[in-house]
Design a protein around this nucleic acid. Structure first.
Lengths: 221, 221
DNA sequence: GTTATCCTTACGGTTTACCACAAAGACAAT
DNA sequence: ATTGTCTTTGTGGTAAACCGTAAGGATAAC
């Protein structure tokens, strides 16, 4: 089992639950920090001291305060650490349950597990730790569908990009121009209209505003 | 000091921190629940048994699951309890730090204290408990401004309602009709336009779509 | 009563979104 | 090359959003 674990979570209180889980697994060498930057430094330092951590459990959202941070979120921390130290196991432990974020963390940053804080968060966390120790991944049930490959009901990246541009305040004509500038095809205003119309039908949205609201709620953007 | 306390929070783990705070204050008779409905029933039962709780510490947001709930959020629970049992002291303990919500809870529902979960959440919670016991109120520093009097530049419930209706797919004319049907004033199309325009300026949004996206990202709707 | 101010409502004009249809291009199979 | 199909683009018309302006109403101060 893991022997040296770091917990990163700005709410000090929640760590006590995590600590008891680790204790159950016989893991005693546990440190905790309340800032991502501290986590980064502690992990770096441990490597220099040739006593590296073998597991990081980190929250994603950290309240900003007076301290200027190089890594303001758990996401930033994970990206940096996995790039520099792919061998370090990382479990994300967050209230966030948006599929898009889960997908990003797992597929792009290669996080080892994603556990949703919730009524059964600690139970799931224990499972996650054991699976990650066996070089496997883990996802909380509520976000397990994020990785299943059947989720794609023919909505592609182009479609997502359109809605994202919409949500950023661009008009449909702006979007057309933007696509032309970036040599993305199709780019005509008419095509943009047509695609968005298809999406509206697919998501049963009354208009573009409704569409953006729905797609945001689904966590696709 | 308080003798019988109920804690309501769907994340079981966080309660351990709260428990240790209560322990420090010499409060041992503490129960905890993970659903607002359970909190309501437990409090009602205790009153019938003539052994009422004298303090409730509750979270605001509870993840919905298979169990159908009469009080899906801590807000609903507080409103109901303060209406039926004004003498019961209630402390809201939440990550939520939106002034609008704080104002509603304190001024309208007469919650006794509002503590933000965060790096210093437990310290603040201890202060809150002591002040509430002395029939005073407490607000975490980051939301203390919620009650200060110069808050008129803020967004009110009417504004939020407008954006929410927008995000539900209603056109501005639909919204006008809806407001007229519900005897909410102002209700004219022109007024709806004007309010939304003000909100667009306030949130630096290019158009209604952008506005909805921004407000959703801020978690206001 | 007058004045000033704020809010609500109404109206016209411009821009953008929405929708149906048609033309032009891309592609594969024969 | 021709056919059929699909995608992309263009056009025109209606609805809705956007924006300025102004009329009407309530309120408070004087």
């Amino acid at each position: 089992m893991f022997t040296k674990v770091l917990i990163s979570d700005d709410l000090g209180s929640i760590n006590q639950g995590v600590l008891s889980v680790l204790d159950n697994l016989g893991i005693n060498n546990v440190q905790q920090v309340q800032y991502c930057d501290d986590a980064y430094l502690k992990i770096k330092r441990a490597i220099l001291d040739e006593a590296p951590y073998d597991l990081l459990i980190t929250d994603l959202s950290f309240k900003a305060d007076h301290r200027e941070q190089k890594y303001p979120s758990g996401e930033d921390l994970i990206r940096a650490l996995k790039q520099e130290h792919p061998e370090l196991k990382i479990i994300a432990y967050s209230v966030e349950d948006r599929l898009q974020k889960v997908r990003l963390l797992m597929n792009t940053y290669h996080t080892d597990a994603y556990v949703c804080k919730g009524r059964h968060g600690l139970v799931e966390l224990e499972k996650a730790i054991q699976l990650v120790y066996d070089n496997k991944n883990y996802l909380s049930p509520q976000v397990a569908q994020a990785i299943s490959h059947k989720t794609d009901l023919e909505i592609n990246d182009y479609d997502i990009e359109l809605v994202k541009l919409l949500s950023n305040g661009l008009s449909q004509e702006d979007i057309s121009i933007h696509l032309k500038d970036n040599n993305i095809s199709p780019s005509s205003l008419s095509s943009v209209e047509k695609r968005l119309n298809k999406l509206r039908i697919q998501f049963k949205a009354n208009n573009a505003i409704h569409l953006v609201a729905i797609v945001k709620d689904l966590g696709l953007i």
